[in-house]
């Protein structure tokens, strides 16, 4: 009972604090502190409710239990991280996005192919591509190659569509200016159209960063060597060791956010001229 009461009081207090903070003039400090308080509140409330209602750890372990498990099994988590993210997701991401980028440039000179590829690309981007996972696992075996293949298939079309859209982003006036300078196709491409396409390309890269991690993990459900985040999640669920599952989820969330964040940082550096980057 005490746990629940404490949780509710804590929640109310933090909510009041957040209301006060958000009424103040927005600045860097509140922009960082308010969401942090919100996140901490949720964790505390979770901890209190788990203890208060005596929820079995088989159903929902408390955050403290997850943190302990996380700290105690760092070596396993590291092995899984390398297997799933570095070998599976990252290599597939680079291959898939690279291939999509090159394809976009290749079809760039043919409006006919573009007109055909765009609707199909949009269509395929909306399909449940994860379903390809069992087939690709069958083709490429259980190790990381098949996971990378799933990631390649998943990221290819979103990336392709975004790059093709981006290459159209420069306007007529700018292209005409390039022509008056006597710029050839490749000069115009590298000096004008690729830089103009960067916001779109980075949009694609960001979308694909989350897709890559999902693809690599889900592909492991269909067969994997005895390491990897997807493997660990599915086996530990079977053993009802939910604290380990949550530890893996924490790793996935951290990796996913960091991956996204790094790409967003690079975007900021590359497309500093774009209106959306202005403060």
């Amino acid at each position: 009972m005490i746990w629940i009461a404490f949780g509710i009081v804590f929640w109310a207090a933090m909510w009041w604090l957040n209301l006060r903070l958000s009424k103040a003039k927005p600045n860097k400090f509140t922009g960082f502190v308010v969401p942090t308080i919100f996140g901490v509140t949720i964790l505390v409330l979770w901890e209190c409710l788990v203890h208060g209602f005596e929820i079995s750890p088989v159903l929902l372990p408390a955050p403290s239990a997850i943190a302990t498990r996380f700290a105690n099994s760092l070596p396993i988590l590291w092995v899984d991280f390398v297997q799933t993210f570095v070998k599976g997701a990252l290599s597939g991401y680079i291959l898939g996005c690279g291939a999509a980028f090159l394809t976009a440039i290749a079809v760039d000179r043919s409006p006919f192919l573009q007109a055909g590829l765009l609707p199909i690309g949009n269509f395929v981007a909306a399909l449940p591509i994860v379903g390809m996972a069992p087939i690709l696992v069958m083709w490429f075996g259980f190790d990381w190659q098949s996971k990378a293949a799933v990631v390649v298939v998943m990221v290819f079309f979103p990336m392709l569509v975004n790059t093709v859209e981006g290459l159209k982003a420069s306007d007529h006036m700018q292209r005409d200016l390039m022509k008056t300078y006597g710029a050839g196709y490749f000069q115009a491409l590298t000096k004008l159209r690729l830089p103009a396409a960067m916001p779109f390309i980075f949009n694609g890269l960001k979308i694909c960063s989350t897709l890559a991690l999902i693809g690599a993990i889900v592909a492991e459900f269909f067969g994997s060597p005895i390491k990897g985040m997807g493997f660990r999640i599915s086996t530990e669920v079977g053993r009802l060791a939910l604290d380990m599952v949550w530890a893996e989820i924490t790793v996935a969330a951290i990796v996913g956010s960091a991956f996204y964040g790094i790409i967003a940082l690079i975007e900021k550096a590359v497309t500093f001229w774009h209106p959306s980057q202005r403060r």
Binding site: L213, I214, I217, V218, I233, V237, V245, G256, F259
Partner: peptide
């Protein structure tokens, strides 16, 4: 942030 958690991976749990 919620979308950086690969929910599909957590689906079994």
């Amino acid at each position: 942030a919620s979308q950086t958690i690969p929910i599909l991976a957590v689906a079994p749990m």
